[in-house]
Amino acid sequence: MARTQKPKDGLKIELRGVSKAFGSKQVLNGVDLTVPVGKSLVVIGGSGTGKSVMLKCILGILTPDSGQIFIDGEETTRASGRERERLMQKFGMLFQGSALFDSLPVWENVAFGLIQGRGMKRSEARDIALDTLAQVGLSADVARLTPAELSGGMQKRVGLARAIASHPEIIFFDEPTTGLDPIMADVINELIVERVRELGATTISITHDMASARKIADVVAMIYKGKIIWEGPVSEIDRSGNAYVEQFINGRAEGPIQMDVLKP
């Protein structure tokens, strides 16, 4: 990589050759990925293929060993401190386990980014939090509860409310439907689609739930062994012509992807 080219216009996020290893385990092995402004990318792939690590590299929670990450054309691979905090204002994230702060009531969770990140007055942030909770179908009664008093589906919706409360330009969804029943999973998918469309946000979601991927994706990319092996519009996913993708979306044990399972 002798010269750094400027990323192309209209790209919100760009990854070039991002690699990350933990000890001797190479988790990301040269990931190249682009997300245009306002598009929804869904990254599919099995467990342990590096999906979460990729998101954490973009967020700066992990630093890649090599490669570059651009956000709005600005290189952010090694941004830290104040610069990272400023950058984070563009982001919202829904975590796999919701990651709600159990020491704070629901409304303060939702208002957290506004109060702590942006220095908004508590009363003002509270009003916005209540509005946002209503948008994900939760009443003001819920706002006073603590996260531990909520069901899994409600926690996910609070997590979604927290991710969108500060109107981020970019939202990440980490396994948004994992652990939910199929109906609640669809409710979450619909909420994600509606809210994201309303905000005009650019999103990356990682999932192994194909129903969810079909519902929320504009573009689908498949990650395998730390590399993007296929990328295309969601409408083409059933005729990808890629044996790996076909095996994954049809959920077959036989195929080119071999699980590390000892046969009895």
């Binding site: 700066g60 400023r86 984070m88 994230m93 990651a99 709600l100 957290f112 980014g113 990140g117």
Partner: peptide, 17 residues
Amino acid sequence: TMRVTEQIDALTTLSTN
């Protein structure tokens, strides 16, 4: 507990060090 339930990562994504 905050670390293993990703609450510390969540702080970072909410612009809080």
